[in-house]
């Protein structure tokens, strides 16, 4: 089942990617990328290394959890009440299908496309910033997951999420049970605060704004997708409003931090300094 779902995600994303690359990036940039990719990768080496090691760590730590956190479900619920249920009032089967699609396929595409698009820019700064921001999102999210143990709405209010007015379930895993295989691979059900779907989508959204001069057509698409992903986390009963707020805060923080850090120190410069130092 898992491989089936994975294959479907890969197929959908690999159909979407070439179309959007052609549409938003353009042939010219892709052509220069073909000649310059070696030097770009060399320049972005550190950022690539950081993001891949964080992702690797993410995979092992997220599944088991260190067991040091504080249980916060009740606190979150007492603060925001049953706010997320407002999405249940407008639920329709079409919306559910849309948000389920967005949550899995839309999100994956939203995360992968900018990596390619910014790699296609001859200035690798944005590419490195994006990767660094991704890494920060995951790293900080990981720490918060360890500290805050909370269950999402679907675990607390199962019947309210599951039985919308339309009669069909809006809870992701009831509507599309196969997705459970996918998310179970990467997540524990107490990894709720903050919503990484929100923070990563918002990160992409903010970057789309920062790069609007290079990719003007991507901006509206990114915004629509990001907002859809963010709403879907609550609509599908996976996250509380507070998780989403925390995700937005995390996104702004990570983007700001990555813009500060990237370009300030360069590892190659550092290396030159060190070798110079050696000579004396």
């Amino acid at each position: 089942m898992l491989s089936e779902v994975l294959t479907r995600v890969v197929i959908v994303v690999s159909i979407l990617l070439p179309i959007s690359l052609g549409l938003f990036v353009g042939r010219e940039r892709l052509a220069t990328t073909r000649t310059e990719w070696r030097s770009r990768i060399r320049l972005s080496g550190p950022a690539i290394l950081v993001v891949s090691s964080v992702l690797l760590l993410n995979r092992t730590v997220r599944q088991d959890g260190p067991g040091i956190g504080v249980h916060m479900t009740e606190v979150i619920r007492k603060i925001e009440g049953e706010f997320v249920l407002i999405f249940q009032e407008v639920a329709t089967p079409q919306l559910t299908a849309y948000f389920s699609f967005i949550y899995i396929y839309g999100y994956t595409f939203l995360l992968v496309f900018p990596v390619m698009a910014y790699f296609a820019l001859s200035d690798t700064k944005m590419f490195r910033r994006l990767l660094t921001a991704y890494a920060f999102n995951y790293a900080i999210g990981l720490v918060l997951y360890a500290l805050v143990i909370a269950y999402g709405p679907r675990n607390v209010l199962p019947e309210l999420i599951a039985s919308s007015g339309s009669g069909t379930s809006t809870m992701l895993y009831d509507h599309s049970p196969e997705f459970k295989y996918l998310t179970r691979e990467v997540n524990r059900n107490v990894n709720v605060f903050p919503s990484l779907h929100t923070s990563l989508s918002a990160t992409v959204g903010i970057f789309a704004y920062l790069t609007r001069s290079s990719y003007p057509k991507w901006l509206p698409v990114a915004i629509v997708l990001a907002v859809s992903v963010i709403i879907s986390t609550m609509y599908l009963g996976l996250h509380w409003g507070i998780d989403v707020l925390a995700g937005l805060a995390l996104a702004s923080f990570c983007v700001a931090l990555s813009c500060r850090i990237v370009g300030r120190w360069s590892l190659s410069g550092l290396y030159e300094q060190l070798t110079e130092f050696d000579r004396f």
């Binding site: 269950y151 679907r154 675990n155 607390v156 209010l157 199962p158 019947e159 059900n189």
Partner: peptide, 14 residues
């Protein structure tokens, strides 16, 4: 338990 563990328990508890 949470609904993933025992859906009926959390509902009864609530």
């Amino acid at each position: 338990r949470s609904a993933d563990g025992d859906r009926e328990s959390i509902r009864l508890a609530r």
